[in-house]
Each structure stands twice: as C-alpha cells, then as structure tokens.
Amino acid sequence: MKYGYYPGCSLLGSAVEYDRSGRALLEALGVELEEIDDWVCCGATAAHATSHLLSLALPAISCAAAEKQGLDVLACCSACYSRLKQTNHDLRKDPALLAQINEIIEEDYKVKPRVLHVSEVLANEIGADAIREKVTKPLDGLKVACYYGCLLARLPKALRIDNIEYPTMLDDLMAAVGAEPVDWPCKTECCGAALTLARQDMVIRLSGELVQMAKECGADVIAVACPLCQANLDMYQSDAEGQLGEQLGVPVLYFTQVMGLALGLTAEQLALDKVIVDPTPLLVERGLVEAGVYL
C-alpha cells in the first residue's frame, strides 16, 4: 500500500507530532508514503474566504504533482484534506473550470488521484482487523473522547465519509486498539478554527466549552485529527480554565498518537513531549509509557 503524502504546512511546524506519529503509525502498519513532490500550501480558509479561484488553484498544484507520481493523496490535517477533496470534486464537475485552473497553474491536471484522510486509510483500506492484530499494548480502559471538529465531518453531501452529526470512524479506531470511546455530544462542534489569532475571545469560549464537556462525560484524553483543533483545545486550555473558573487538565492528543501507544511505539516516536497539557502522568499511571522527563 503506497500513497502520495501531503503533510501540509502545520505538520512542518506546530503539528510536528501529528506528522511524526502519523508516519510512524502507518509504517508500523506496512503503509509506504512518498511525499508529494514540491507540494504547496492548500490555502486553507484564508484562500476560500477571499478567492474562489485561488482556493482551487493551490490544491490543484499539489494534486497534479501526485497525479504525475501516479499516487493517491493521503493527508493528515483535516483542513488540508477538506480543501484538496473539495477542489477535486469541483474540478471534476466542471470541465471549463478545470481548463481555467490548468491554465492558471500551468499544468495538464486530469483529476485522477483520490484524496484520502489518514483516518479513512486506517479504517477502510487497512481495516480494524489488521490493526487489532498489531496491538501489543491494548489501551484497556483509557477513555477517549474523539473530537472530529468541522472539517473532517462537515463535508458537502457528495464527499462525506461518515455521519455528519455523530461520526464514528475515529471511535471505531479507538475501540480497535482497546480504548473506550466516550459517548459525548460535541464530536463535531466548532473550536473556532482559523479565528485563532484574530478573534481569540471566540476561540477560548468555544474550545473551553468543548474540553469541559469532554471532561464531564468522563474522558481521560481528547483525540483529534486536525492541527487547528489540537492547538485551540490544548494551547488555550489554561485561558479557558481561567474563564470557566474550573480546572480542566485534559490532554489533547492526535488520534495517531493514541493509536501508536497501543502498537507499542515509544513516547519519542509519537512526539508526546510536544503537546502542552502534559499527558505523561496519566500515561505512566496506565503503564503506556515509561516514567521520565518528556518536556
């Protein structure tokens, strides 16, 4: 199994732990990744909010490179994933638009590659059974609240991979590695996303309420699939605590980090030291990582 890997900009910076844990997890499951040659930023909300053409041109450049490599596209970041997938969908529907984009990006893109999210590859292409076989440290009793956020779940009808209001794909993956998925009502609530710098007030309120609800529902950790969700829930947790007047202290991990633990990958391989609300006391207590200093 081989895919064209689209890391996206966050995974080179604030989300390096998603990149490292995702690669390590896929390698442990026998998946080969070849990075998409000279990929460019997907443009994220900044592009689709201000220029429809640019929001299609940027993803098309990277997808055209994957097409030349003869590979499907695998993305970890939910935001990149939704932009790349939406672009392919729009270009397939409208040949005139495709011609215009090809002219803009100086390519002859034919929209051949599929765009897949890492969770989709794990759930549908590798499958829970194959994953279960590789588990060496089942996460018995670890209560995980899977937080899908908007971009993974709230795709337009034609592109959906899961239930839009109550998705279960990440929960099923957690169950496959022995964890206990938490039934909670905020799986697809919004964390404030790209407003993180410009409207922090909104982001702190939204992500604080989410973490609070996960905790009330009994979660030990929150598992996420998007760098913006991770940053907002993790980085602003102390601010939210101040506003809510309540201690939260819920570690926010990428779901690839959580799964990697069960496959016996080390704290270093999963870059557990990169998250801000420290998960190590909990994970040491559960015997999932060795005690030590990870900051």
Partner: peptide
C-alpha cells in the same frame, strides 16, 4: 489575518 496568510504563501509556497 487572511491577507498575511496568503502573502506568506505567495512568497514561499508554504506557510511558516
């Protein structure tokens, strides 16, 4: 914010 974001992409191709 969106402008700053796209300026950066225009300059480097990726966002720092």
């Amino acid at each position: 914010f969106y402008r700053s974001f796209l300026d950066c992409v225009q300059e480097f191709g990726r966002l720092s």
